[in-house]
Write a protein that binds this DNA or RNA. Sequence first.
DNA 1: TTAATAGTTGCATAGTTGCGCAAATATACA
DNA 2: TGTATATTTGCGCAACTATGCAACTATTAA
Lengths: 100, 100
Amino acid sequence: MDTLDISKLADLLKALGEVNRLSLVCTLCDCKTAQNATCLCSCCSVDASGVSRHLKILSQQGIVTVEKRGRERNYSLNRAYVATRLRELADRIESNLETS
Amino acid sequence: MDTLDISKLADLLKALGEVNRLSLVCTLCDCKTAQNATCLCSCCSVDASGVSRHLKILSQQGIVTVEKRGRERNYSLNRAYVATRLRELADRIESNLETS
DNA sequence: TTAATAGTTGCATAGTTGCGCAAATATACA
DNA sequence: TGTATATTTGCGCAACTATGCAACTATTAA
């Protein structure tokens, strides 16, 4: 894993590593359908502008996808992408090495 | 997953979500034996005091274990613990729901 | 004891982050 | 049109974070 990958992964983990953002992610986890920002407000303790900013960070990191629908934005979790990144790191951490 | 768990997991991810700390973790990944702080300095772009502080945060989060040995501290990665936390989240994210 | 080595801690600083509020933008609908 | 709803953005603020430096503690070894 080179420096660039580490930096990119760190950005992903940092995006997940904030309690309100992780709450948003966990809420989206439990939703079969995409949710709009107003609906997502209820799961974390910030106002709409804060939720908007958190969702922007999550989407910049590829954690959620936005779909514009009228005046709403519908957010859905990129389950496979996030799970894959987390499992890749888990696998790397648990890999048994022969050398060093 | 309740609020407390989310908060605790966010703390873990935040600890991993800093590029120098993640570099330390990845370096320890590739080491079969525990490494001391001076040795770990080379993998990230901060001085010894910075490394010391980052390692403290990692150990507070249970990511690494410290073993005092003379004037050295030897750090090793808690592979199973970290990998398990990451996989738990990955599993939750990918779980298919029947409702909602 | 003295000097060297390993690591930690206090301090100051620069930069980042999360937040609410208010204003702005965008869209829908009467 | 005008009004309501959904979301974003600018602003300022307070709190937090990462950093280097210098001083410190702890341990080893000459």
